[in-house]
Design a protein around this nucleic acid. Sequence first.
DNA 1: TCGTTGCGAAACTCAGACGTATCGAAATTA
DNA 2: TAATTTCGATACGTCTGAGTTTCGCAACGA
Lengths: 200, 200
Amino acid sequence: MTIQDSGTARPAGRPRSEKAEKAIIEATLDLIGEGMGVSELSIEAIASKAGVGKTTIYRRWSNKEDLVVDALSTLKAPLPPLTGTSVRDDLISLLEAMRQESGEVRSRCVMNIAMSEADRYPRLMERFVKRAIEPRRLAMRDVIERGIGSGELRPDLDVDMGMALISGAMLWHTKWGPAGDLAADLPERVVDAALAGMAP
Amino acid sequence: MTIQDSGTARPAGRPRSEKAEKAIIEATLDLIGEGMGVSELSIEAIASKAGVGKTTIYRRWSNKEDLVVDALSTLKAPLPPLTGTSVRDDLISLLEAMRQESGEVRSRCVMNIAMSEADRYPRLMERFVKRAIEPRRLAMRDVIERGIGSGELRPDLDVDMGMALISGAMLWHTKWGPAGDLAADLPERVVDAALAGMAP
DNA sequence: TCGTTGCGAAACTCAGACGTATCGAAATTA
DNA sequence: TAATTTCGATACGTCTGAGTTTCGCAACGA
């Protein structure tokens, strides 16, 4: 009985390098961040950028899609802490998180992939939605429903529609708004516009 | 002097087949509609699908991007007629046009390309925006500005933000709403939600 | 020390697509 | 009819990248 017998008995031989694994994932994300679509992504480019042999990649992932799925899964989606003081503040916090993410090359291109390659890579999409989209959607839904409960929002409000208005406005600015980073006051303006409505 | 001497004297030889040209464009759009990204699109697949020799393609377009640019330019963007009776009606008309387009495989996939491959194919994107996005944006802006003038909308309304709310909500539903076609009453609900606001 | 396994590098085979060239047939003008 | 140009088909050489194999070395357990 060895010292480290904790469940998985380590097999003989040189252990796999965690460093290489991290480098591979990083390289993959970097390349995606540089604007590569999944189909343009080449294992050779990843290996080269990661400073790693192709063997080392194929030993861990059997094909490109598996690797991309794992790489995207790595991107954590830390939700901002919500103060809960008001619906307006919480919504702004959520959108501010979106705004900051949209400034990171990586997140932006991951979003591109999520929006364009969903049909072609359904596994990838499914996993991405579960990790990145769903938590935010739930958080926003919570905020809105709490707002309805507290009387801050109209009791007959269509929650899904409210979410669509707010998230959609951010999405729209990201894609088709003025070039460059999103304005710092955008979250506030979006939330106020959605809350206020357009009719006089 | 021949009968048809209208400006361009026809050179000797067999004239280029318009039918082939149409078939090539159609095949290109079909393949894009089947979920192909620009980079996956192959000239050989287009030629095969169009029932045409590769020569016939290369004689007209010198590379893939030129062909795709031309193919996308072909997609007309007929704006719906606006009654002008009320802001609400006009906005619903505009969104209804968007909704119907989102149901066509072709338009949807073209949108995918527009949203994901903008960085990689700037020429393509530029042309697409000018033909497809810009006219709609202007139309919506007109409607909103007229509404402000007529008092139907708040005089202090941020026009761009209003457009972002409305278009964004449609965009959001297209991408992340319940699967399948957009609900028939979605345009109406989006417009009413945006006009009303969320606060009580 | 020895056996085992992972490492990066390089060579390899295989498939797909590019872009060009060539063919005989078809369509048109002169 | 003759000259010219396009047609679809096909073959070609080239390149890129997938995925495999081999190599000598490194890192680990026994």
